[in-house]
């Protein structure tokens, strides 16, 4: 069963730049997919369309049964409650502790306060940060901050985890740790993960499905692919 269906999708910005052109792809439930491509290739636009930060100009993007192209602004929250997003720049609130940052996601969707605590602790435990719940983001390393970001993304047990270059600001060792955490989430909870990255080493090591985007077009889609394969193409 496909969780993501992109059909004849175009994204043309107001300045006339075509970021995505006639893109077709589908991602099954429980898959771990790497999205690769050079800067400006259109992968970030595709990622943004998946969580409806951008709207397709033409075609359809269906995520968990919701057609993003037809989704009204006031209903976007319904889509976003079904997914988690991990950012390159973490997007943590500096004045909140680790616990509060993760709880903020559940408070924002109106969850009962008595249900929040166990869920937050569980999410922080799964990323190995249960001991740092009272720390503030500036007291954490880059890797730890990214793990808080992952905990915040998975705390609501989403069907889909969208990771926009989550290792872009991290050193290779920490990057591997982050990807291992994501892999563990994918295997234990069957959360579908789509991860945009430039990190060749990680892509080559993980042997997962790799989608290459070039000039807004799907250039290659190979199971157990690698970054090297695409470089050779």
């Amino acid at each position: 069963m496909n969780l993501i269906e992109v059909k004849n999708c175009y994204k043309i910005y107001n300045n006339g730049v075509t970021a995505v052109a006639d893109l077709n792809l589908s991602i099954k439930k429980g898959e771990f997919v790497f999205l690769i491509g050079a800067s400006g290739s259109g992968k970030s636009t595709l990622i943004k369309m998946l969580y409806r930060e951008e709207k397709p100009t033409k075609g359809s993007v269906i995520v968990g049964g919701i057609n993003v192209a037809k989704l009204r602004n006031s209903k976007v929250y319904k889509l976003r409650r079904k997914l988690g997003i991990v950012f390159q720049d973490f997007k943590l609130l500096p004045k909140l502790t680790v616990y509060e940052n993760v709880a903020f996601a559940l408070e924002s969707i109106g969850m009962n306060s008595k249900d929040i605590r166990p869920k937050v602790l569980k999410a922080l435990e799964s990323v190995g940060l249960k001991e740092k719940i009272r720390s503030f983001p500036n007291q954490l390393s880059g890797g730890e901050q990214q793990r808080v970001c992952i905990a915040r993304a998975i705390v609501n047990e989403p069907k889909l985890l969208i990771c926009d270059e989550p290792t872009g600001n991290l050193d290779p060792i920490i990057s591997k740790e982050i990807v291992n955490i994501l892999d563990k989430i994918n295997q234990t909870s069957e959360t579908t993960i789509i991860m945009a990255t430039h990190d060749k080493e990680i892509v080559n090591k993980m042997k997962k499905r790799v989608i290459l985007i070039e000039n807004g077009v799907l250039a290659d889609d190979s199971l157990k692919g690698s970054y090297k394969d695409h470089e050779n193409n």
Binding site: Y77, L93, A105, S108, I109, G110
Partner: peptide, 17 residues
């Protein structure tokens, strides 16, 4: 604004924000 941005991204409805 970053607080509002995060609220939006985690699925808070406009009225909740």
């Amino acid at each position: 604004r970053s607080e509002i941005e995060i609220m939006r991204l985690v699925g808070a409805s406009n009225i909740t924000i």
